[in-house]
Design a protein around this nucleic acid. Sequence first.
DNA 1: CTATATGCAAATGCTTTGCATATCC
DNA 2: GGATATGCAAAGCATTTGCATATAG
Lengths: 144, 144
Amino acid sequence: MCCEATMIQALRERGMRLTPQREMVLHVLHEIPNDATAEEIHARVSRLSPAVDLSTVYRTLDLFTELNLVSSFKQADGDQRFELLTIHAPHFHLLCQQCGELSSVSISELQPLASQLFQTHRFELKMEHLIIPGICAKCSSRTA
Amino acid sequence: MCCEATMIQALRERGMRLTPQREMVLHVLHEIPNDATAEEIHARVSRLSPAVDLSTVYRTLDLFTELNLVSSFKQADGDQRFELLTIHAPHFHLLCQQCGELSSVSISELQPLASQLFQTHRFELKMEHLIIPGICAKCSSRTA
DNA sequence: CTATATGCAAATGCTTTGCATATCC
DNA sequence: GGATATGCAAAGCATTTGCATATAG
């Protein structure tokens, strides 16, 4: 799989090592539909190898985030969540500040804003890291 | 101030009490430009009355949130933040992922995206809470 | 008076860190 | 062989909770 090759290269470039733990975390991230907490990822890794520590999972996820393999963000409930950047079509997220629901939106909807910000501010919007806060349909109808 | 009257009435309706602590938290919220953490709010209250406990601040902010005086939300970094509902920031932020520079942009530039997201997803973008990640002009010219 | 609110201290839940040991290159 | 990673246990940090006391109405 291309992710693994990417990871191996990125690790080599930095003099870092390919360990079974890192392979397992990467593998497990492919099985997860959307995003997951470190606990969830750890639980899945544990099925493959029970000795792997939660702290290792955290360290690995942080590493992957730096390597740009994973995006990491916090939901409204405060849980930090992680997902593979490559697995899905390019998208950004809407985060409901009330219920914490996270939904994905194709980056095509962002294109106009991206051009706008580049034209007026020379700012290159990183669309896949964008999390837009607001109130989702369910919550706003509940309140209204 | 009108907020205070609103608070008093809301408290009365529920058989709750008007305490100095609640008054101070409400007062302090007016001094804060945008939004603040519980710690920041507590620090300001402490200047008025050092004995007030952080837990009381949390309880008060939760209460105000229920009373709809305050909006409470978590930023993407996970910090929970609070702000008076009556105060609105006229801008959102661009955050450079390389140098960390934070710049402000008028919400008028966001309007098209906001309408777009509302039309297609019924999602109410909270513009003043938005922080857009990317690469600023300085950094991208430096890299190029 | 008496129910509600507070301060204090301890508990919680997620995440990070220090360190000795194990492991990859 | 020597630096990098890991597991373990303990520390951090923001937030919440239990409880006796203080206080608003």
